[in-house]
Structures are given as C-alpha cells and as structure tokens.
Design a binder for these strands. Sequence first.
DNA 1: CTGAAAGCGCTTACAG
DNA 2: CTGAAAGCGCTTACAG
Lengths: 334, 334
Amino acid sequence: MKSLSIKDIAVKANVSITTVSFIINGKAKEKSISDAVIEKVEKIIEESGYKPNQIARSLRTGNSNIIGLIIEDISNSFFSRIARLIEDKAYKKGYKIIYSSTENSIDKAKELINMFKSRKVDAYIISPIKGIEEDIQMLLDDGNPVILFDRNLPAVNTSYVGADHFNASYQSIQSFIDQGKKNIALVTTDINVEQVIDRYNGYKKALEDNGIRYDDNLVLKIHFNQEEGETMAQIKELLQHKHIDAVLFATNYLAISGLKVLKQINKAVGADFGVIAYDDHEAFELHTPRISAIQQPLEEIAETIIKLILSQLSTKSKLPAEEVIIPSRLVLRD
Amino acid sequence: MKSLSIKDIAVKANVSITTVSFIINGKAKEKSISDAVIEKVEKIIEESGYKPNQIARSLRTGNSNIIGLIIEDISNSFFSRIARLIEDKAYKKGYKIIYSSTENSIDKAKELINMFKSRKVDAYIISPIKGIEEDIQMLLDDGNPVILFDRNLPAVNTSYVGADHFNASYQSIQSFIDQGKKNIALVTTDINVEQVIDRYNGYKKALEDNGIRYDDNLVLKIHFNQEEGETMAQIKELLQHKHIDAVLFATNYLAISGLKVLKQINKAVGADFGVIAYDDHEAFELHTPRISAIQQPLEEIAETIIKLILSQLSTKSKLPAEEVIIPSRLVLRD
DNA sequence: CTGAAAGCGCTTACAG
DNA sequence: CTGAAAGCGCTTACAG
C-alpha cells in the first residue's frame, strides 16, 4: 500500500499542490489562501491521515530536523541519561535524535561523522576523542552547528559544555584533608583526555595547596579497555601495599571495581578509610556504608547543549564558540 | 561551502552521472563500464571526498537504511544495553538506528510511529505498550517489518522476541522453596503488560505446584510512575507487618528501592530472608550480601531481533510472524 | 487568491 | 561500453 503524496491530496481537493503545501506549512494566511480552501484541504488531510514525506522535504529544504548524537557508548549510564534528556528537549522543538556509539575508536568516530553528514543532519552533538579534530573542523567549515560535550578538544574552536572536573576533584580531595586524611590515592584511567587530566590536576593542586607532598606511587592509571579482573588486581595491589587512608576514583566504573576489591580484602570504608567516586551511581547509595560521589549536572549539561544548538540553528550567521563549564556537586554520604 | 553532488563528479570525470552512479553502487561490472573509467571516477571520488546524499538516495529508492527503535526510556539500563547491542549489529549491516523514548505514553508512542513513518524508516523495533495495536497493524499493512520485543501485544500478528518471564519467575520461587522458604512475597508493578503478568503467573504457579497457598496479601503491586518515597513506604509496610521470609522483586528498580528499605529497617538479607531481583544490576553484585538476580539474555534478544529484521528486509514477500522466547538465567549469589 | 514549473540529488529503465 | 531523461515528493520564486 503506497502512502499518500501531496499530489493525491491536491487532486482530491481539486487545488494545486502549491496550495496544499502552503497550508501544510502554515503559510496559508501569509499566502492569502481563502478560508474555504484551507478548511477543505485540512479536512481532506485529516481524513486521509496524510503525512508529508520528510525525506522529500529534507532534500528540498536541505535540513532534516535530525540531530546527530555521537557518544562513546549509549549503554554507559552517563551517556544514556544525557541522551534521554537531550532527546526530550530536542523532541519538544521538533528535532529527532539519531545516535551512534564510537567505542572510543577514531575510525568509527570518523565514519559516523561521514554517515551523519551524508544524512544531512542539522547539527552534531559529540562527545569527542582525540584524533577527529580535522573531521570536526570540516563540519564547522561547512557551516554545521557542532557542540562538544563531556570532553573538550582544545584544538577545535567550537562550543563545549562540560562539568567542572578540576574543581570537583579539588573539592573531593579537600574534603578528605578536612577529615584529617593524609595519604590520598587517585585511581584514574590512562585515557589522554582533558576531562581526565582535569581530575588529575585537581587532585594534585589540592594536595599542594594543603602542603601535602604529591606521591606518584599513590596514583594508579588504569589502562583503558582492559579486563575488569586485571583492573581489580592493580587496585588490590595499590590498596594492600600502601598506607592509604582515602581514595578518589576518577570514574564510577573504577569505583565499582574498587569497591569489589575492598570487599575481597575485607577493608571497610568508613572513618579510617575514605572513598569518593567520580560520577554517581545507584550502587553507591545502596552500598554499606553509602559511598560519597561527585554528581555531574546532567540536566544542566543537556539543557545547555540544546540551548546552544537551537540558537545556532535559528541564526544563519555563525555564532562565536562558547565554553560552558558547569559545577559538579560533591555528595557526601554516611 | 556546498557539498559535492554526483553531477560535480560526473563533470570532473567527463562522464555522465549515470556512469558515476553505477560505479558508486558497485554496478560497474554488471553494467560493463570500462576499467579505465572506473578507475578514473573512483580516483576523483576518493580525492574529492564525495559522499552520496543519502536523503536523495532514500527519496529515489524508497528506503532509508534507518531502523526506528521505539522504547520506553533509553536511560533505563535494560533498554540502553539492548540499544547498544542492536546498534552494533545493525551498524555492521549498514543500518543506522534512530531511537525515541515513549515514557509509557500511548500518545507519544503513536506520534513516534508517525514520525518514523514519515521518515521512511526501513523497519521498526518496538517495545510496545497497550493501545498502539492499530498503529502497529497499519505499519504491517503497509508492508513494514516490525519486531516487538520485551513486551508482546497478543492482538497484533507480528514477530516478538522476549525473555521467558514465566519460567524465570517460577524458578526463582522454586529456589526459595527449595531453601525452605514458605512465606514468599512478590513486589511487582501494576502495569498491565504480558511481561509483568507472566512474572506474576510464574510466582503463583510455583507456589501452587509446591502446595503453598497463594496469599494476596503477599503481593504488592506498585503504582507505575509514583515517587520512590511512596514506593519505599509501601514496601516497608509489606515487609514490616507480614511474616515474610523471601521476596521476589519483579523489576530491578523495585529491588533497589526494596534494598534501601531493608537497610532502613535493619533487616538483613541472608539465610533467614531471601531476595531475588528480576533483571540484574551492578548494584546487586556489590551489595552486602550480594543479591541474587534474574539476568535477561540481552545479547540473544538483540541478536534475534536483528536476525529477524534482516531476514524480513531481504525478503520481498512477507514472512510469517515468529515468536521467540529466550530463557532467562537465574544467578544465585552468596 | 491560486497555479505551473523548476529543482533538491539521486537511481534506473531504456536506448543506442 | 555509455548517456539522456524521467521521476521520487516536496518547496518556493515567479507570474497572473
């Protein structure tokens, strides 16, 4: 069963397709179509259940009302929650989201950008990785709105929205120090992205400002993408053999692995041993004792991304790149 | 900067767009284009970075290589994990995914179906809700492949992929009974979907088969969409005032709320009080003690969905609806 | 107040 | 071995 076209409606209503098009697009008044015709056409559209073919419309107008979302992995709760919020807000403005996960692969990220480009998405929301700077620059040169989030790419001059990782990390360490902790470890990843580096720098600076000597042995950089078993072994090594009284985990996955280790080696989290996780997770509220965490401002991040996208979409002229850093929230538990 | 069109390539190569099109679509041999021309054109495409406009291609061919995914909520880990697996598998076959969350609203679900329809998606993967049977039937009547998952809609004759909720529930209860439990509660939702009903029926049947009287007072149906505080209050009421020695939570969210309650009222999970959660969650492995759970076979579900979609997409004739029920796995912990 | 026609960028049946 | 032309379903500048 073929679906109806604008021509079918025009024939039924005994008017031209121009007239139908004007009515569909709310330009009837502007084009001074008579009320009688408007009514007749609308009635026919209503009854027939006609929906304009968006593909044809896109081809003609050059925009798709689709926003491309490129993230590391939709199954990661940070991204899926952001995706949900973005979807919601975009949806209200008539935009749909098409997403894809890069799995931290430069090749896949490049491929996705090309794919979205050939699909003529109206705007790009990207949680980028190093190595795709050129591709993003090309998008910008073509006049596409591109908003980076979560991770910034300093080499590219486009808008970025992210949490204040440096300060969140700094405050976490400060709170440990305020509790009298002295040997504070950091378990982080070896991914070379600003976001991770900021957390590291916040850790370092907080120690420094409090006159505590930075000790490289207390910083564990876990290799990205390795088996959880190995990660746990490395964390175990760190926690068993060093005199550590507090640890900041730079991602919630590392924190979860860390908590499993602590359970294995029977080391209790509490007054003697502090734990803070970067990025909250349902498991932390439920853990005994409850685990403190840094909450990224998801709602604000999503809100800001969409706001930036829409303002770029509605302006023809290119807007200056904006960098929006939103404070994270340290939630101390138990 | 306007992007290149097939015409630009044809001009540069000094051939017709027909020839370019044949080459792009791998029909060069079949159309017996000379090797010299193929090489020349491919070189120009390569150098110029030309990508065919998919919108134009879609308009012409009538298919978009996009699969529409309609789910309840992408931020729910069950769906985001399925989405990831589906994305992966579809991607390998050249399909992209466009998703949207229904939030359990019939109106939104209908709207999304229309939206996807006007976007000419090639196939639909839907975790449906009651009330959209007609809309799905229309999709089928129009010849679109539609696969339902997670929840079935008995009134619609289309393929369905889901876990075996009845047996999983039955086995959980059986395992409680094998441990000598007698007063087994069920905390479930009041959503009226097969999937939830199956879990309830599995619970009931297991009791019956073991000669334990079913007691309505031990079944708590939590109102969908209510505040967590209220949910916890209701669970607390159940657990405090009844002689219960085991409880099956029919969703992982309910289980998490339940575990929070148990913590509040200082009731330990263990030999005297059993807990099984439907749908595993990272928090359960980490909980003290670790919580047993039913794992849905996500990988198999995603695999089967894509397999069905692809076979429908590759056959012109309509395939008979298949109902694939995949066993869940009960993971007993501690 | 309304319509004929061009054109968005492709694919493909047809012709040579 | 290759190309001219129609057509997918729209929007819109132009004409009357």
